[in-house]
């Protein structure tokens, strides 16, 4: 496979609060190759945003801190990089778009001003030329009346328009890596389809690697090559999109996929995972998913499973993959199939 753009190794980002230490990213390892689209999925509080903010070195501190681990971006460990260096990387080689674009657009400047600034950091062209370029970028991301919108302020635009502006900004600096944290979650489906289309184009045309964070498995199926499933601060499964969606190995991923109402099927009753979505916590013993897992056995409550490597570069954090658990495994298999 092609060269690795980003590699997280055993990332631990913890929050130190009055209620104790929260291991929001609890030993997260993820690789993103050049031109690849990798999805991080998981329910709320599973550590997706903390992982992406850690990469950008934007964890609010206090209360948060990267406790250990490495974040290698093209061979450079960002955990060790200075703020000055990060400022250079952000919005340059690594771009980020958020769920609510308003938080990353400056309300006091026009769309044009912000775009022009971004363009001029990267290209030595005149103000006038960069304004023309800004308008061109806005047209490229499907903004109507681009020559008027360029002089408008962020609040004058709809959510979908603002997200397109963010993508235009991200594209204007031709980043190596785009981190998109729930970029379409606040948008309606017809607008979401437009934005996903833009991201796909960016990936195909510029070969930009994308780390896409979402809770929507439909969005994953649309544009991701590979998927990482997170649960309570840990990666519980990873594999290609097709493998994860068609043949999930971890009981949590299995449950999640079975819980979805399917538009093309007529199911009577939905499958549901019992219990509530947990917050990452320290001091727990055993598998984080054990209290909700229908396959959990004795060992799951005493010992934490490692991320087992399976065939085809797949990984799953579950004792059912331990070769010494042959009997249990047979059980689990027949349960799934029945």
């Amino acid at each position: 496979m092609s060269e690795i753009v980003l590699e997280l190794k055993e990332l631990h980002t913890h929050f130190f609060t009055d209620n104790g230490e929260i291991p929001a990213a609890n030993g997260v390892s993820i690789k993103v190759h050049k031109g690849e689209v990798v999805g991080i999925v998981g329910e709320s509080g599973s550590g997706k945003s903390v992982t992406s903010l850690s990469i950008m070195q934007l964890i609010p501190s206090p209360p948060g801190r990267i406790v250990s681990g490495e974040i290698n971006f093209k061979g450079e460990n960002l955990v060790r990089s200075s703020e000055k260096r990060m400022k250079k990387l952000r919005g340059n080689e690594i771009s980020m778009i958020f769920q609510e674009p308003m938080t990353s657009l400056n309300p006091l400047f026009t769309i044009g001003n912000q775009l022009i600034e971004a363009i001029r950091i990267h290209q030595k062209i005149t103000k006038k030329e960069s304004r023309q370029k800004a308008i061109k970028m806005l047209k490229l991301v499907g903004i109507p009346r681009a020559d008027a919108i360029v002089d408008e302020y962020p609040h004058q635009l709809s959510g979908g328009m603002r997200q397109r502006v963010m993508i235009a900004m991200a594209m204007s600096c031709d980043p190596e890596l785009l981190i998109a944290d729930e970029p379409t979650t606040a948008l309606d489906v017809t607008i979401q389809a437009q934005i996903l289309d833009l991201m796909r184009n960016l990936n195909k045309k510029e070969n930009t690697a994308i780390l896409l964070i979402t809770h929507d498995l439909g969005v994953v199926a649309e544009i991701c090559d590979r998927v990482v499933v997170m649960y309570a601060g840990q990666v519980v499964e990873q594999g290609t999109t097709r493998e994860i969606l068609k043949n999930p190995q971890h009981p949590y991923s299995q449950g999640l996929i079975k819980s979805l109402p399917k538009i093309h099927e007529r199911e009577q009753k939905l499958y549901s995972i019992p219990g509530i979505v947990p917050k990452p916590k320290t001091g727990g013993i055993g598998c984080n998913f054990a209290p909700r897992c229908e396959f959990a056995f004795e060992r799951c409550f005493h010992e934490a499973p490692e991320l087992y490597s399976l065939e085809d570069n797949r990984k799953s954090r579950c004792f059912l993959h331990d070769n010494n658990e042959g009997e249990v495994k047979k059980h689990a298999k027949s349960d799934i199939e029945s």
Partner: peptide, 22 residues
């Protein structure tokens, strides 16, 4: 609207109708 819904199934490829504008 129906064509825009992303489906969690990599085998279901559809012709998407992408609407213009807001």
């Amino acid at each position: 609207l129906l064509s825009a819904v992303p489906l969690p199934d990599p085998d279901l490829r559809r012709d998407r109708i992408i609407l213009k504008g807001d």
